[in-house]
């Protein structure tokens, strides 16, 4: 597999470590009243789609960027990649 690193171009997937669904970017507020239910969803439940999946990869043997890769889990085709930091900042800006 090749991951199209947003800064470095295509890189061998062996340089990366996989984490999972990019929903892990959306950590709930631990001080909220419903925190426990929200964290159960966040930590344990997954959409697990057969198709387009946004997921987190860490460029461990490279520049140590976390990258959100959009990939089809049936064909393994990669549709895009963004820096996770940018995605997270945009989400926070949107939420604010």
């Amino acid at each position: 597999m090749l991951i199209p690193h947003p800064l470095l171009g295509p890189r061998d997937a062996q340089e990366f470590t996989y984490l999972g669904d990019a929903a892990l970017l959306n950590r709930p507020d631990g001080m909220a009243a419903d925190a426990q239910a929200a964290f159960n969803d966040y930590v344990y439940l997954r959409d697990n789609p057969a198709g387009v999946h946004r997921e987190l990869w860490f460029h461990e043997q490279g520049d140590r960027s976390w990258v959100v890769v959009t990939r089809n889990t049936v064909t393994h085709e990669i549709l895009g990649a963004e820096l996770a930091r940018d995605v997270a900042l945009a989400a926070k800006a949107g939420a604010a």
Binding site: G20, D21, Y44, L45, R46, D47, N48, A50, T73
Partner: peptide, 15 residues
Amino acid sequence: GRVMAGAGMRLPIES
């Protein structure tokens, strides 16, 4: 995941 999505369930499972 695919089958149970038909019953509206998210599960603690990844494929």
